[in-house]
Design a protein around this nucleic acid. Structure first.
Lengths: 108, 108
DNA sequence: TCGCTTTATCGTATTTTTGCGATGAATTTT
DNA sequence: AAAATTCATCGCAAAAATACGATAAAGCGA
């Protein structure tokens, strides 16, 4: 979206959209699910688990990192990713509050 | 995403991503919020409420329509949109279940 | 030290999204 | 019937997202 017009939308709407955008690709959903299932923080195992190249998976990880849903630590030659439960909780609360509001709306 | 690789992701992941994609723009969040606030099903009032052209707003409405979050009825020369509470509830449940799972995950 | 593994980043190509003006269809109003 | 209103759609341009191979950096093991 054009930077000039971004300010035209409410901050919370932009925040919600940013969260949604981070989740708007099945690969990133799958990554989060993998991190949820394996207690281990994973790295290149994700590449094996996904039908995508290493560089593409790395890019998706960056997207999730930038929005804060996951965090990374360096473990020797490899990178270890894990869920940022705090951020996820915050995002979940935002989304839940929004959707609950919608559900309660009087329909036409 | 390439149609050829779409099948490589779990159906539920694709469904979640599709919902997220529909919400991945502040204009569409704002549209849903407008429909929530005004009990009236709105049409071109949305254009006045948003910093976007009529054709662009119409496009965003189509996106929300296609994913089923809103529904439309024709009222004379104008179109009347309203929230599809049923679909919203379903989407909300899907998202909530996913995020709750993430929150409970054992972190590294 | 010399490879070997692991992973982020770069460069690039392709596709998708976003945005707008113009146009046309449908309907109401005059 | 003519003009005006409302809105979806088309055509197009610009921007962003997606994907991948190649490359480079960093650490491990021989």
């Amino acid at each position: 979206m054009p930077t000039a017009k971004k300010a035209a939308f409410k901050a919370e709407d932009q925040q919600l959209a940013a969260i949604a955008r981070a989740l708007a690709h099945p690969a990133r959903i799958a990554i989060l699910r993998q991190l949820m299932q394996r207690q281990t923080c994973i790295c290149g195992e994700l590449v094996s688990a996904l039908p995508l190249s290493q560089s593409t998976v790395s890019q998706h990880l960056q997207v999730l990192l930038e929005v804060g849903l996951i965090c990374a630590t360096v473990d020797g030659p490899r990178s270890c990713y894990c869920l940022n439960v705090h951020a996820i909780r915050h995002a979940g609360a935002l989304v839940a509050r929004f959707l609950e509001g919608l559900e309660k709306a009087p329909c036409c």
